[in-house]
C-alpha cells in the first residue's frame, strides 16, 4: 500500500513538473515588460508556497508531538523542516536570479528578502539542533519547542510586502495576471505539493527505520 502511494506521488509530481515546465516555458506568452525573465515565477512562487506548507506542517507536527509524545509526529516535523529548507533554498536562488535582470541587483535587504533569509537560517539552525542532541526524547522535545517558536517568522514573511515599503512586489493574484499565465502557475503549485508529500513520506519512512534500528542495536548491545 505504502509503496503504491510513494510511486503514485512520485509519478504525479514528476508528470506535473514536466507538464508545468513545458507550459511555462513554451505555451505561456512572454511578459510585456520583462519578456522571458518572468518565467522563473513558475518555479519561484510554487517554491514559496511549498516552503510555507512544509514549515506549517513542521509547526503542527511539533505541537502534536508535545501533546501526544508520539515519535511519529517528531519524524514528520523533522522531515517537513528538511524538505521546507530545500524549497526555501530554491526560493532564494530563483528569486535572486530573477532579481538581477529585473531589479538590477542579486540581493537587497528589503523586508521580504530579509525575513525569507531569516526563515532559511532559522530552519537550518533547527536542523543543526536536531543533529546536536543525542538523547531521543530530549531532542524531540527541544526541537518541537524550537519548531513552534521559529514559526513566528512565517506570517511575517507573508505580510512583509503589505506592512512595509519593499522592493519585492505584492502577492500576485489571478486578477493581476494574464489568464494564460495562471494555468502553468497552478500546475507548478500542484507539482510542488505532490513533490513535498512524496519527499516528506520518504524521509519519514527513513527516520522511522533509523529509530527502529537504534532500538534493535541498543537491545543487542544490552549485556543482560
Amino acid at each position: 500500500m505504502g509503496r503504491f502511494l510513494d510511486l503514485g506521488l512520485f509519478i504525479i509530481a514528476s508528470g506535473l513538473l514536466l507538464l508545468g515546465s513545458i507550459w511555462g516555458l513554451w505555451i505561456a506568452p512572454p511578459e510585456a515588460m520583462m519578456g522571458d525573465v518572468y518565467r522563473i515565477m513558475f518555479v519561484h512562487v510554487p517554491s514559496a508556497w511549498a516552503a510555507l506548507m512544509a514549515y506549517t506542517t513542521c509547526l503542527v507536527a511539533s505541537v502534536i508531538y508535545l501533546f501526544s509524545g508520539k515519535s511519529g509526529a517528531d519524524h514528520v516535523a523533522a522531515a517537513s523542516a528538511e524538505v521546507g529548507l530545500v524549497f526555501n533554498a530554491l526560493l532564494l536562488i530563483t528569486g535572486s536570479l530573477w532579481g538581477r535582470p529585473t531589479w538590477g541587483v542579486w540581493w537587497t535587504w528589503d523586508p521580504r528578502l530579509t525575513t525569507a533569509a531569516i526563515m532559511f537560517f532559522a530552519y537550518a539552525g533547527y536542523l543543526a539542533l536536531r543533529g546536536a542532541i543525542d538523547d531521543d526524547r530530549r531532542r524531540s522535545t527541544w526541537c518541537a519547542v524550537v519548531g513552534i517558536i521559529i514559526y513566528a517568522d512565517i506570517p511575517i514573511v507573508w505580510f512583509s510586502v503589505k506592512m512595509w515599503n519593499s522592493l519585492h512586489q505584492l502577492q500576485s493574484s489571478p486578477k493581476t495576471m494574464d489568464p494564460a499565465m495562471v494555468t502553468p502557475l497552478r500546475i507548478g503549485a500542484f507539482a510542488f505539493l505532490f513533490a513535498f508529500l512524496w519527499l516528506v513520506r520518504r524521509r519519514v519512512v527513513a527516520l522511522r527505520l533509523r529509530a527502529q534500528n537504534d532500538i534493535l542495536m541498543m537491545n543487542e548491545g544490552d549485556p543482560r
Binding site: W103, G104, T108, L167, Q169, Q171, T176
Partner: peptide, 14 residues
Amino acid sequence: RVMVKHSNEYRAPV
C-alpha cells in the same frame, strides 16, 4: 544604485 521595482501585474504583450 538604481533598482527597478516591478509590480505584481503580469501581462501578455499586446
